[in-house]
Design a protein around this nucleic acid. Structure first.
Ligand code: SF4
Ligand code: SF4
Lengths: 137, 137
DNA sequence: TGTTAATTCTACCTTTAAGTAGTAATTAAA
DNA sequence: TTTAATTACTACTTAAAGGTAGAATTAACA
């Protein structure tokens, strides 16, 4: 019951980039060192984020990364989608699948409530919302 | 954001055993075949459940398994604990850990709500509650 | 135009979860 | 007392996540 490392890293990376959106470009070394993420793993994640157009990359000397959209337009859910970590409507806590609308266990309705809250939280929280505030996340 | 296979299997196994609590003993072959769980993996899980005293095992010919407590006294949370799959109080969705009570991100308060609901659901739902009802889970 | 600092690509290594195989131990029935 | 049916144990294999290494590519700048 937790997000994957990749998702967690990606959220922290993008939140950090939101904080520093004044600086035109941020490079991988800075991100890795500041956020304590293994450099090589970080670059892999960055490449993923570039591919889905959340981040823009400038290669070569003086290159680096920057957000491709306004931070208020990037939702946490968008990030989770990249790493297949978001909560699907049909997804069950118990992960079973032998059941349907007519035939459901007693946890079904109880699960709906936290599930909807989580989906809403991921869908409606933007980077702008979670970034900065003087705290290092 | 999902329970491990072991937890999911264990829940289904114990729910099935609750349904059949009239029959004195249920053996591994029946469980594996009925619930479509790989036999060898199932026996490993059963051994875990026996070790934590949720299930009692009778070895030898005509042996099998039975619940060691009343099904209304076995909570889903007890099962998740066995496989380290329950939600700790301090556990964060983002899994970060650079933050504390004074310094928290905007998701923090939103996460509290579904977290408490999930914890409550796992803590207060017994096998009795989720089992049977004519459905095969 | 060559050097250098940066991202990107390809391939590999490590760790953990998931699943399998074979055998020993146990016990009731034949 | 043998045999068959059962769980328990030890060790291995496979698949997926997490992480690493090194070379290729790109572009500023001297
Ligand atoms: S009925 Fe129960 S097992 Fe089925 S999807 Fe709903 S919560 Fe999951
Ligand atoms: S402040 Fe944010 S990152 Fe920290 S524990 Fe709370 S939800 Fe997680």
């Amino acid at each position: 019951m937790q997000l994957s490392n990749s998702s967690q890293y990606a959220i922290r990376i993008l939140a950090y980039m939101t904080d520093k959106k004044d600086s035109p470009l941020i490079n991988a070394t800075e991100l890795a060192e500041t956020l304590f993420i293994p450099y090589k793993f970080l670059t892999k994640i960055m490449t993923d984020l570039v591919k889905v157009d959340l981040v823009e990359s400038i290669r070569g000397r003086e290159g680096g990364f920057k957000l491709k959209k306004k931070s208020s337009d990037i939702m946490v859910g968008d990030i989770l989608d990249v790493f297949n970590d978001s909560i699907k409507d049909e997804q069950c806590v118990l992960g079973i699948g032998f059941c349907n609308g007519l035939c459901k266990c007693a946890l079904h309705d109880q699960w709906m409530e936290p599930k909807l809250l989580l989906q809403k939280m991921f869908r409606e929280s933007s980077l702008e919302d979670i970034a900065g505030r003087g705290c290092k996340i």
